[in-house]
Design a protein around this nucleic acid. Structure first.
Length: 232
DNA sequence: AGGATGGGGTAATCTGGAAA
DNA sequence: TTTCCAGATTACCCCATCCT
């Protein structure tokens, strides 16, 4: 049965901008700028364009695909956790785009294998970053890239978003899979949307009760509730 | 009765602009 | 240049009322 109209669910426009912002915990206005770009006025009263950083699935209607979600997840690591100036990010991403001949280099497997080194080295050349600085960045990027699961051909098929602070060791309580619940975040391995968990909690059920019903630890349930409420 | 219409309030989204 | 706040705008939902 084909419920995706013959298209790869990874490519389908499935997420609004505010939704992506919640899922990867980046301020909504920032996601908007990265995805759509924006005009801004300069001192001499000329309107300039802040170019979008990624190419989204449906720019006209402002919908993003799962692949776009993955790109922004990686971009947020580079930009927000590491404070690399966006100008440098753009140059490095352009470089990867040409090098990999890909429209979405940040979401590619090559990014995960040798892309990080290439990116960081290129970035190092651009801004003359120290070896130590480069190493720290590789570590940070890896912690984000490790949360992307790929199929045999290397295409991203699942994303485990950070549910708590970025420093937290890698807990994988929540998963986003475009083939499960149409890409809504679910508890790993259950197909149970975190939104449903949060709803039950708000309706008065305790995490213990919910955990019992689903057959998971109440720890995981609390994590899902936290993810949903922080997202809101 | 049962669907169509619209009023009114809330939630979601967009946009201008200040701050960094 | 870039981020992101906060106020403005638009979408959405619920329910009462109207029409057939």
């Amino acid at each position: 049965m084909d419920i995706y109209g013959g298209r790869d669910p990874v490519e389908l426009p499935a997420y609004s901008i505010p939704e992506v912002a919640r899922l990867i915990r980046v301020p909504q206005a920032t996601v908007r700028s990265w995805a759509l770009g924006r005009r801004y006025p300069t001192v001499d009263d000329r309107r300039k364009l802040f170019e979008p950083v990624i190419r989204i699935a449906d720019a006209a209607s402002r919908w993003l695909s799962f692949r776009n979600l993955v790109e922004l997840h990686v971009l947020s690591a580079i930009r927000r956790d590491h404070g690399v100036r966006l100008g440098e990010v753009r140059k490095a991403v352009d470089y990867l785009r040409r090098r990999f001949k890909s429209r979405h280099p940040l979401a590619d497997e090559q990014m995960q294998t040798d892309g990080t080194n290439l990116f960081v080295e290129r970035y190092g050349e651009l801004v003359d970053a120290s070896d130590q600085g480069q190493m720290a960045m590789k570590v940070c990027l890896s912690s984000y890239l490790d949360r992307i699961e790929r199929d045999a051909r290397g295409a991203a098929i699942r994303l485990y978003p950070f549910t708590t602070s970025r420093e937290e060791p890698d807990r994988r309580t929540v998963v986003i899979d475009p083939r499960v619940q149409f890409g809504r975040p679910c508890l790993s391995g259950t197909g149970m949307p975190t939104a449903v968990i949060a709803e039950r909690f708000l309706a008065g059920d305790s995490p213990q009760e919910i955990a019992q019903d689903i057959g998971l630890s109440s720890d995981a349930i609390e994590e899902a509730i936290r993810y949903e409420s922080r997202a809101a």
